[in-house]
Amino acid sequence: MASLVVDPSTPSAAGRVLDSPWLSFTLRRGARFLVSMWVLVTAAFLMMHLVPGDPVRAALGIDAPADLVASRREALGLNDPLLTQYVDYLRNLLSGDLGISMGSGEPVGTMVVERLGSTVQLALLAFVVAGAIAVPLGVAMAVATRAGRRRGVELVFATSSMLAAAIPEFLLAVGLVYVFAVNLAWFPVAGAATLSSFVLPVLALAVGPTAILARIARVEMLAVLQDDYIRTARAKRLPARRIYLRHALPNALTATLTLGGLMLTTMVAGTVLVENIFAWPGLGSRIVQSITAKDYPVVQAIILIYGGLVLLVNLLVDITLALLDPRSTIREA
């Protein structure tokens, strides 16, 4: 009989998952992601129609014969009522069809997908490099300069990180090209052929975010070190390592991660400039070519991908944050 009695202190595994604030938080965040995605898709759809003048005429040039423009308009469905076009656009998107290029007539999907990989590679690598340097650096700086210690170190760190953060990635890229590719010829100036061709673009993308992230990590860590529970940990006479790494760091990371996610999204945008300087075969160099050539379906698709990446990063950051700091699931509700 006793085995039939359910002990209220140990709920079944399924019950625990369903009750978990983390799950409902994740569901809410998922819903928000979908709404944002819908806004993004709608904006991308409207872009083609907000462009001044006839987009097809603009893409093909003023010399293009009228019947070619008319047939291209027909092929793109631009003569249908706006709502019909919108529904078609959504339906095509769901089946993975991103339309066809106005210039070459190729399907945009295949054109874009092969370039997505190199852009994501670049951004992720830069992000990993930035995080791997910035977080330990910021934490070490916080520990070294806490409560007004080592003013000199603090001054050097504050000044150099401010300067590094102020240099935009494309200027840094130009400087890197000048020093390491033109003068020293250590690294290739363009393309993504070899491993060494990653060095300069990744550096150009990572330096600024590293500086910003390290500053944030330091400030967050300093704030956490002031918290009462750190005093509790000290009262337990834990070794300094454990106090800093196990007690302080996870609490400092939550805010750092939020802003780190923001960094990753700006890095995604930063690839546009960096790719164009290093002739990187990614989405960034393609979107600029397409904007100049007024190939709007391609621009539309790439904007959509960039936007989707940004929203996805934000979603992942929020979910990770909820795992790290269980309180954030409540704060939101």
């Binding site: 944002s36 904006a43 872009m47 907000l50 462009v51 001044p52 999204t265 700006t266 995604v268 945008a269 930063g270 546009v272 400039l273 979107i287 904007i291 709007y296 621009v299 904007i303 960039y306 936007g307 940004v310 929203l311 934000n314």
Partner: peptide, 15 residues
Amino acid sequence: AFPALLLALFFAVVF
């Protein structure tokens, strides 16, 4: 949520 550069690209195309 979107980086300013992406928004700027979008609006630059629109305008």
